[in-house]
Design a protein around this nucleic acid. Structure first.
Lengths: 116, 116
DNA sequence: CATCTATAACCGTTTAAGCGGTTATAGACA
DNA sequence: TGTCTATAACCGCTTAAACGGTTATAGATG
């Protein structure tokens, strides 16, 4: 019960939910992508990603300066069930909007780098 | 996204999770049953039940002095999905233990009333 | 009406989350 | 080595949760 409550707590925040939705949609994203697309500070992005990682929902992978986050390999049975249910219920229009923003950002990033 | 996070928040607490598990298992329970079986204060039980009711997960029904709580009729699509997933993942042994305790309590209650 | 019971609502306190700003670290690169 | 970049870790502050104890309310019962 402890663990189940913990998993729900990890998803009980709009920012973390949006991060998970985007990562589920794209497989893997780096911190600056999420910071940009969700229009949040780097410190906020980092904090919430750490939370999701500590809960065991995400893994990270360093690649040079960037750190990429993806859904963890070793989800528990409980976690898998909850994440799957969450995935099915994400707000489609909102997620669509975020994905378009992400695409625009990725294009700009590939031209001009990670800065603005 | 707002609502989804709200639903997760409602389930992000061990007490509320246990309450929901018991109510799902039995259909309907009154406040004193939950107070007794979970060994919590009345004020705590009432507070968490109000939380679940305000989130739209539970309905209440007054019957004389007692108030019975059950899973709400009008769950949103999201809520139904999440509750169903949660139900599947409840800690079986723990829930079994609570149910045995509940049965013992209900027997005693029918004999001696709601008191101890 | 007076009293008793089950529950809700309130209150003051403690604990935990979340936040932005700042500093530290790890790796790239001149 | 010095500097730049992406990210993590830290800090002080603010807000929100949760708690137990107490009081209020609704309905039962004598």
């Amino acid at each position: 019960m402890r663990d189940l409550a913990q998993t729900f707590k990890a998803l009980a925040d709009e920012t973390r939910l949006a991060m998970l939705a985007l990562i589920l949609a794209r497989g893997e994203l780096c911190v600056c992508d999420l910071t940009e697309v969700l229009s949040i500070t780097q410190s906020k992005a980092s904090r919430h990603l750490r939370y999701l990682k500590n809960t065991g929902l995400l893994d990270d992978r360093r690649d040079g300066l960037w750190v990429h986050y993806r859904v963890a390999k070793g989800l528990t049975r409980e976690q898998r069930a909850i994440v799957t249910a969450a995935r099915r219920t994400f707000d489609r229009p909102r997620l669509g909007g975020l994905e378009r923003k992400l695409d625009a950002w990725l294009k700009r990033k590939s031209r001009e780098g990670c800065k603005p």
